[in-house]
Every structure is written in C-alpha cells, then in structure tokens.
Simulated assay, not measured.
Amino acid sequence: MFKMRNFIVFLKCILCLFLSGIATHTLAETKKLLIIDSENAAPYTEARASLLLELEERGYKTGENLEVSYYSINNNKGTGIRVLRAEAGNHDVIFTNGTIASLAAHTFGYANPEHKFVYCSVTDPIGLGLIQSFNQPANSNFTGVAYGIPVYERLHFLRLVLPEARTLAMIHSDLPQSKSYVKWLKDELSMPEFKDLRIIFVEIPFLSGEHGSKRMIRQMEHKVQELSPVVDVFLTPSDQFGTKPIYAETISKLSDKPIMALTEQELKLGWGSHFGAYPNQENAGRMAARMVLDLFNGSPMDKIESVYSNVMYGIHKPYTDRLNAPLPNSIWVSNQITVFHK
C-alpha cells in the first residue's frame, strides 16, 4: 500500500512537470503581430478582420498566444514611420494594410532583415518598390497580397454588362495608387479589344480626414455635373477617395449614368454603384494570414510568393433596373455574378 501511494505521488509529480512544460512551451510560442492600417475604414477593415479570423482558426488567438498591436495612421506616412520606429523591433511580423502604411514601412525598413513585412490592400506593390514581380519568391523583406484586380478584368466585365458604352469618366485623387491605376488604364486602352473606349480622367488633390473628404466632394460635384451629359459610365477609382460611401452617393445624386464599382461594399451596401468587378478582400486577408503564419513558423521570406486576390463580380439589381437600357440576359443567368437586392 505504501509503495502504491509513493508510486501515485511519483506519477502526480511527473504529470505536473509535463503540464508545466506544456505551459512553458505555449508561452514560448506566443507571437507578436504589429498591424498598421492606412485608415480604419473599408477596404482595410475587411482584410484585417479576416486576417485575425484565419490566424485564430489556425491556432493563434489574440490574448492567448498572439499579441496584437494595432494602429491606424489616417493616411499619414509620417505617422506610420513614427509608429514603426517605436514598435517594429518588438514584433515578429508587421502587417501593413494599405498603400500609405506600406509606403511608410518601405521608407522605414526596406531590405532590413530584422523586420518581416506582409502587406495587403496595396494597389501597386511593384510601383512602390515592395516587390519586383508577382507569383515569384520575395526578393526583400516584403511579401503580401495586392489590392484590386487586373485592369483587363474590369474593362472586360464592363463590355459584358454595357456593350454599347464608349466614353467613361473617372474622378480620382492624386494618391500614388491612383496615379498607378490611371497609367494601367491608359495602357490597357491601347489594346485592340478596348481601342474604341475613351476615359476622361479628372484628378482632385487628396485631403485626409472627414473634413478633407467633404472638401474633395465639393470639388467633385461640379465635375460630375459637367461630365454627366457626355459620358456613358463613371468608374470609381482605386484609392481611399473612391472607397468611401459619399463618393458613389454623390455621383448617383447628380447623374443618372451608371457607376462601375471597384469594391464589394459599393454594391452590397447600396451606396449608388450599379455593377462592378472587385477583389475578394476577405480572401485577401486570409491569404495574408497564411503568409504571416509561415513567417511565425520560421519560413524564409524568399519562399513566400506575392500574389493577387481572386476577382469577384456583382450587380445591384434595384439600381440597374432604373437604367434606361436593360442589361443583357446573359448577365442575369451567370453563376459567377452576385446579384445584390438591397
């Protein structure tokens, strides 16, 4: 009996040591993630939420074995650099969500092996100098998921929905991503498939903050009124100006011409856009999360390829029903197009 009691005590000690080892191992496995959003708004909020959800589903839960530090820099590059100077050295991976956040990261720590960056929601990572090409291993300390869709996909979908459209207009800001996107559109118009299309580009200086957006809208209003009689379609731009609800709402209020969206929210939430081709931001966040996990687990940066998210298509039925010309029947029967009814 005495020997049995001693044996049980011995087993309990072994079990305590084993559990203590597990706890110590778990503590050692805690990772630190720094998240910097260009702005605390769409499309960044979607990508961030899906990133954290994917990390949790794969075993890293905030407050347990994942420490997350979050900052929104309100599209101010200088603020982003100051955040990185203070925080970068204390984190295993840095997630930069948006062009301005990633531009700050590039200025702060490009090619510095002490810092590992995963970007998301960046329109032109090649133009910013973050990477050299897509679907290739990283050549620096940056990798990630680009924002947007190939320009060809957008113009091709426009052709399917409004085959008679010839003159387009895009009112955009002077942000770096807008300048890149304008260049890509101009390049695509030189292709035979789109040579009969014409795009009128109107640039408005970007002003940050809520009051800045309102001032930009005031500048935009008279441009919409000037353009409406001569264009067939308005295109929302690839920048923070175009992703705000007030952008499509303003055009919808001042013009009866269709608006082509570049984000899902414009259609899903009924901001005024009629149809669109757009990136899957939920998928983009999940793809970025898997890159973060690879880095957490010790994968070298040059083994992780930079990619685009997948393309999605949508139509807002109540708005398109108000157009003078009906859409082709093929659009309504396609199982690749989401039809929004609210």
Rank of each mutant, 00 (worst) to 15 (best):
F201C: 09
V202T: 14
E203D: 14
E203C: 02
E203M: 05
E203L: 00
L207D: 09
S208M: 09
G209S: 04
G209P: 07
E210Y: 07
E210R: 08
R215V: 07
R215Y: 00
R218G: 01
R218N: 11
E221L: 01
H222Y: 04
K223V: 01
V224Q: 05
Q225H: 03
E226C: 02
L227I: 05
S228V: 04
V230D: 11
V233M: 11
P237Q: 10
P237T: 13
D239R: 12
Q240K: 10
F241A: 03
K244E: 11
E249K: 14
I251R: 02
S252N: 15
K257R: 15
K257F: 09
P258G: 09
A261Q: 08
Q265A: 14
K268P: 02
L269Q: 10
W271A: 09
W271P: 13
G272V: 02
G272N: 05
S273A: 15
H274N: 11
F275W: 02
A277Y: 08
P279S: 10
Q281N: 15
N283P: 01
N283V: 10
G285E: 12
G285P: 13
M287R: 14
A288L: 11
A289I: 07
R290C: 03
V292R: 01
L293D: 06
D294T: 07
L295F: 01
G298H: 03
